[in-house]
C-alpha cells in the first residue's frame, strides 16, 4: 500500500478466490480466509461519507500545528470503510473521492475530496 501511495495510487486488497475487497490490509481474506490477497491500485476510489469529526486535540506533536484537523469515515463503493483526512468537511451522505499519498513520516494516508 505504501509503494502504491508513493506513486499516488490507493491500493486495497482483493481476494483472489472470492473477490472480497478489504481495508486495512490483512494477512488473509476476512471473508473466505484465502491466503495472499492481491493488491489492486487505483488513482481514486469513490465513496460515501458515514461520519465526520474535527480534531482540536492530538496526542502527537507533529499534528498539533495542523489543528483543527477534519476527518471522515468513508464507505468505499467497493465495500470497505476507510478513515481519511477530509479538509473540505463534507456532510454525512456526501459522495467523495479518496486518494492516497505519503505523509511527512513516509506513512500512506488517505484523503477524501
Amino acid at each position: 500500500m505504501k509503494a502504491a501511495a508513493a506513486a499516488g495510487l490507493f491500493a486495497v486488497q482483493r481476494c483472489r478466490v472470492c473477490g472480497h475487497v478489504q481495508y486495512p490490509p490483512r494477512a488473509c481474506c476476512a471473508a473466505c480466509l484465502a491466503d495472499d490477497p492481491a493488491w489492486e491500485a487505483a488513482a481514486v476510489r469513490p465513496g460515501t461519507v458515514l461520519a465526520r469529526t474535527v480534531l482540536h486535540h492530538s496526542h502527537e506533536e507533529m499534528f498539533r500545528a495542523r489543528l483543527p484537523l477534519a476527518l471522515a469515515l468513508v464507505r468505499l463503493a467497493e465495500g470497505p470503510v476507510v478513515l481519511c483526512f477530509a479538509p473540505d468537511r463534507p456532510a454525512i451522505g456526501n459522495a467523495v473521492q479518496v486518494r492516497a499519498a505519503l505523509d511527512a513520516t513516509g506513512h500512506a494516508v488517505l484523503e477524501a475530496r
Partner: peptide
C-alpha cells in the same frame, strides 16, 4: 496517522453518526 486523536476521535465519529 490521522491526527493521533485516540479514542476521542473514534468515539467522535460514532457519536456523529
Amino acid at each position: 496517522p490521522y491526527g493521533a486523536g485516540g479514542a476521542n476521535a473514534s468515539f467522535a465519529l460514532i457519536t456523529d453518526a
